[in-house]
Amino acid sequence: MSAITIRNLNVWFGAGAERSDAVKDVSFDVAEGESFGLVGESGSGKSTILRAIEGIAPNWSGHVSIAGEVLGKRRSRQFYRNVQMVFQDPYASLHPRQTVDRVLSEVMGLHGFTDIDSRIGRLLDDVGLGSGFRFRYPHQLSGGQRQRVAIARALAPEPRILLLDEPTSALDVSVQAEILNLLADLRAEHNLTYVMVSHDLGVVGHLCERIAVMKSAEIVEVLGVGEMRKLEANDPYTRHLLESSIHSVR
């Protein structure tokens, strides 16, 4: 059974003459336990797809079903338990006046957990922070630590699917390596399904098994990570993207 099915998804901003299409006629499936990557340049609409799934993008049409639930205008509480998101900028995704403890306990309260205290401890251990960080404010944390808190928050309701919106692009490479390892571990441990957006083909290639390449709001090609590594792309744009990211590393 596929965890995510998307058919003919369109997302747009504005209306009438002002309308601009951010995502045009996009379709893909993500299997249970799979890690799926969306790559493309800025403005290609890759993040917008995640936002449409989570219901943050206002105007969308098409068929989206998550774990068998077909999404309508409103998302159910069950949906939010199943699907969580990690944002790009760890400096903007945590409330500046709330401690780690406050963030996590509020989230757990929302999902109706009762053994909040022990759960917070376990969650912080899971993301490699430990209980020393429990009562800190975001400004007392480094970028990587903040992103771990954001991951802990996303894991709090025990979701099956994580949407990752460039989770490491604001971090240093060594911290990026830590977070990518953490994400790989968590996926193996909790059998999570990932949809990851990134502009960095190295990052996506490391974490994902299948990759969709986006250009000007459309998916131009979906290819496996093996083909990507051998630079076997059919689409000229994909080839160009692969070549330029290989060159920047060599």
Binding site: M85, F87, A92, H95, R97
Partner: peptide
């Protein structure tokens, strides 16, 4: 439209909670 408000919305928080607990303190 900041990410931390989106994040709590994605946890299923209602509008009243978002306004009183997350926006008011700031």
């Amino acid at each position: 439209n900041s990410d931390f408000i989106h994040a709590i919305r994605l946890q299923g928080a209602g509008h009243t909670r978002i306004v009183t607990r997350h926006i008011w303190p700031l």
